[in-house]
């Protein structure tokens, strides 16, 4: 028996999410014993990715499907190709990272196999029992799959450490057959968000400034921090009113509602209308010179002090 990990990559390099997924695969391997972890790399000119995969600690074999029609990595083509590979080998589990790549692909594979999937696991109790957050993390469910059939999983990267790399390389084998894609799906283009302007509502990290920044020029300090964190820049209404930044920066009840993994509020007192736009952020950092500012009431980490002095230090230390 073996466990298959679907590699996430951009044809040039392997994404770290794959490393976290391999760790999850190894955990399952420990539970069942006598299993191998295989990685399937699908794409075009992905030899480098395959090599990188072969050097992941704990991976015993890498399969490579290299074809022009796999370049775009559409779910349709990859699911067909994975299905072909599964016909050829015997797997107990298929794992993909719970990223947009894995979320897009894994359920399609599961459906083609007519088996269920367990999404976004955060813990592995045994080969068929997993813990996963539900209700946006407000509850944790322990779920168990039936013992028959392949188990399809997507894995939360944040819950499993990244697997290490080794000097010894696992074997790299081409898949026994590359299947053509008949779906007619065409990739029109990709638009990777540049660091200059990251969309507030989809950013993983948001840094926002308020009246505490005192003047428009000081927003530059915030932008430096944002560039370092690959974050979007937001603002309170007071900062918008004062003319520091345009209206579309506004986070709040009457602006944009954001819920990033990390929200850093700088010089923002925390009027309810602002809080309403960011309070669902996972981790909130507040930097303000007024120790009584309401923003500290909802902050996970509060730092009292002068924003203009703190910002450059923070940017430097990150």
């Amino acid at each position: 028996m073996a466990i298959l990990v679907l590699a996430e990559h951009d044809n040039d390099s392997l994404k770290p999410s794959t490393l976290h997924t391999v760790t999850a695969a190894k955990k399952i391997e420990e539970k069942i014993g006598e299993a191998e972890v295989h990685v399937l790399v699908m794409g075009e000119k992905v030899e480098a990715v395959a090599k990188a995969s072969a050097h992941i600690d704990g991976v015993s074999k890498v399969f490579l499907a290299d074809a022009p029609h796999l370049a775009a990595q559409t779910a349709e083509a990859l699911a067909l190709q994975t299905g072909q590979h599964l016909n050829a080998s015997n797997y107990s589990h298929i794992l993909a990272p719970a990223t947009t790549f894995g979320k897009n692909l894994a359920p399609r594979i599961a459906a083609q196999l007519d088996v269920p999937q367990v999404s976004g696991i955060s813990m592995i109790l045994d080969a068929h029992t997993f813990v996963r957050p539900i209700y946006a993390g407000n509850a944790l469910a322990t779920v168990q799959c039936e013992a028959r059939g392949v188990v399809v999983l997507t894995v939360l990267s944040t819950s499993f450490d990244a697997a290490g790399t080794t000097d010894t390389s696992a074997a790299i084998e081409p898949v026994n057959k590359v299947v053509p894609d008949t779906s007619g799906v065409r990739l029109v283009g990709r638009q990777l968000s540049s660091s200059e302007k990251i969309e507030l509502t989809s950013a993983r990290v948001v840094v926002s400034g308020g009246r505490g920044l005192q003047k428009a020029e000081n927003f530059k300090l915030l932008e430096d921090l944002a560039a370092k964190l690959h974050a979007a820049v937001g603002a309170s209404r007071a900062a918008v009113d004062a003319g520091y930044v345009p209206n579309d920066y506004q986070v709040g009840q009457t602006g944009k509602i954001v819920a990033p993994d990390l929200y850093i509020a700088v010089g923002i007192s925390g009027a309810i209308q602002h809080l309403a736009g960011m309070r669902d952020s996972k981790v909130i950092v507040a930097i303000n010179k007024d120790p009584d500012a309401p923003i500290f009431q909802i902050a996970d980490y509060g730092l009292v002090g002068d924003a203009l002095a703190i910002l450059p230090q923070l940017t430097e230390q990150l």
Partner: peptide
Amino acid sequence: SIKTLKVQPPQPRKPGIRVSSVEEL
């Protein structure tokens, strides 16, 4: 075909803390 064995509350969100320096943050 998937059984839910149990549902638990997550770790409660820790109360916010004050840090004293940028390093600590």
